[in-house]
Simulated assay, not measured.
Amino acid sequence: MAIQWLPPEQYVKTLPMHAQYACFFFTDTENRPLQLRCSVPATRSIWQWPGGNTDIEGESPFETAVRECKEETGLEFADEPRLLAVFWNGPGEWPVGKVGFCFDGGRLTTKEISKIRLDPDEHDLYAVRSLSKWAQTMGTKEFQRLAAVLRARESGVPAYLELPAARSRRKR
C-alpha cells in the first residue's frame, strides 16, 4: 500500500489535538514557593502558579506565561525564559489532552510580593509557604508537582511529568 502524502493544512486535521498552558514558578528570597488560590467556587481549594491557557493564535508558551502572569498578578516578567518543567495532562476533565510549560519566574523580594494584585475572577489569595507547609495544604498529586518543579529549579534539570486523567487512552 502506497503512502499518500497530504498538504500540511489537510494533514493537521488528522492529528489529535491538545490545549496548551504556561505558567511561572516564583519563590521568595528564602526559596519558599508562591502560589495563588483559585477563586472559582468548584475549585476554590486548588493552588496554582500564575499562568493559564494559550488562547491567542500563534502565541508561544513563554508569551502565554508572561501575559497570564501580568493579567493574574500585575507582575511584569522581563527576563529570558528558563524552562523548569513540561506537563502532560491526559484527556478527562477536558475532552483533549493539555500540555503545560512551567518557567522559572525567579525569587521575589518582600516588596515585589506586596505589589501583587490578584484578578478576583481567577484568584482570591496568594501565599508564600515552605515546602513542608505546602505539603499540609495541598493534595498529594498537586504537592508532588510542586516538589518536582522546585527540584528542577535547584538541579537545573527540567522535569517532565505525566498527569494522566481518568479517561487516559494510553496503552500499558
Rank of each mutant, 00 (worst) to 15 (best):
L83G: 01
D28A: 02
P8V: 07
A22D: 01
G100H: 06
V96M: 12
V12A: 11
S168G: 12
V40H: 14
E59L: 14
F25M: 08
T64R: 10
R44N: 11
T27E: 10
A159K: 12
V86K: 07
F77D: 04
F143L: 06
P41F: 04
A19W: 06
V12F: 14
Q4K: 14
E93P: 07
E162C: 12
R44C: 11
D79L: 05
Y126E: 02
A159L: 07
T29M: 09
D104V: 02
N89D: 11
Q20K: 11
G139C: 02
T137I: 06
G97V: 03
K171A: 08
F143R: 01
R67Y: 05
R169W: 13
A147S: 12
L150F: 12
D121I: 02
W5R: 12
P95N: 02
N89I: 08
L118H: 10
V96L: 15
T109F: 02
C38W: 14
T14R: 11
E9C: 08
D121P: 09
Q48G: 05
G139Y: 05
L34Y: 11
H18D: 12
A159P: 12
W47E: 03
T64S: 11
L75P: 08
T110A: 15
L15W: 11
K141R: 10
T43N: 14
E154H: 12
L36Q: 09
L146T: 03
S39C: 09
C69M: 02
F143D: 07
P120G: 04
T43P: 08
L131R: 01
A78D: 08
P164H: 06
A135W: 03
S130V: 00
G100S: 09
A22Q: 07
K98M: 14
I56F: 06
E93F: 15
F24T: 00
S168T: 10
F24Q: 01
I46V: 14
E122Q: 13
R172A: 11
A135V: 00
P120K: 09
L108M: 07
D104L: 07
S45G: 01
V12T: 14
L118A: 10
E68K: 13
L118R: 10
Q4N: 10
Q48L: 15
T73Y: 05
G51D: 03
W94H: 15
